[in-house]
Design a protein around this nucleic acid. Structure first.
Lengths: 172, 172
DNA sequence: ACGCTGACTTGGCAAAACAAAAGTCAGAAG
DNA sequence: CTTCTGACTTTTGTTTTGCCAAGTCAGCGT
């Protein structure tokens, strides 16, 4: 099985490590099971505290912690609401930042569907409401090609310092 | 911010929970930081034990545990190798199952690049080797439409039991 | 057989994640 | 002001993840 082609100063793996890795940074925010599943429920439309507790099947304490963290991180926002005759409460709504994590969770779902599900294809179908066709997560280049693992290259980003000897160490 | 449209028996969130969720199942396999980062290194081309230890920056004990688990789960396979004058050792190679998790990790990376990275766009560029264009993770339907959160629908999979009252509870 | 040494295994510990239970808070109505 | 009760906060305990250090194993060469 092939791998990503490491280009430029990254080609020698012995000379660098992924020290500012965006994956690792993402995991700091959403790297717990309860955070991922809380986000799943937000995508399914949950807004209210008790609903997150019930549907994620976690304790109120954990839900409160996760919701607070995800709100602080910017993935969710607290929006006041008030049922008639009730007091003001808060709903947790996805932000754009939160919504943009969807491909990662969908890709995990797709992978789990394929390799881990009890039933072939998994328990749920995800489709495009507009045309009814099944939805998948693709890795594509800007020219529209679908790219597999062996077709990927990775280089130090241009916005960083020049690819001097120091730079390959500070990579992702 | 919108959410996925829950269709059919799934429309009432109060009547079901994601009990066989493929995301949750995936997290059982790769839901630790060390597993995710081990997979990252496999995508970057690492094969050998010491390389995983060094580049993931985890202890040998954790590397051994994670590599054993990922091998048992089918994401990696152990392949014997022997440097001249040395004893037989094993490399850990990606399987198709392992390679197919790439979109999830790339999507996490993409999201981290956008929202968490110290530098705009993140420290590394991922491109299509064949044409040089930047690579992204897209959510698309089979008709080729790019679909955002609000454009998604989800239904109980056809391969499951009829969408009776019992069925919506056993979903993902 | 012994020596070598990288790849583990094991034991003890700390931190993080999470559960259970109890308690507190907040904002409304009366 | 009191009452209500959902949304937390806190405390205690368990499990999981990961670290450190020491030890064992495995397969080669001599």
């Amino acid at each position: 099985m092939e791998s990503i082609t490491l280009q430029g100063g990254l080609s020698d793996r012995d000379t660098w490590r992924a020290t500012s890795c965006s994956i690792a940074k993402a995991l700091e925010v959403v790297g717990t099971r309860s955070a991922m599943l809380t986000m799943r429920e937000a995508y399914y439309g949950a807004h209210r505290f008790e609903e997150f507790v019930r549907r994620v099947e976690i304790t109120e304490a954990v839900a409160a912690t996760r919701l607070r963290e995800l709100t602080a991180a910017g993935l969710l926002s607290r929006v006041p609401y008030q049922d008639p005759g009730q007091r003001t409460r808060h709903e947790y709504h996805l932000t754009q930042m939160g919504a943009d994590l969807l491909p990662a969770l969908l890709a995990l779902m797709q992978w789990g569907d394929r390799y881990l599900a009890e039933q072939p294809g998994g328990p749920l179908n995800v489709t495009h409401v507009g045309c009814g066709e099944p939805v998948t997560v693709d890795v594509r280049c800007a020219a529209g090609h679908e790219v597999d693992l062996g077709g990927l290259g990775v280089q130090v980003s241009r916005t960083r310092k020049t690819p001097a000897s120091a730079s390959p160490r500070a990579a992702r």
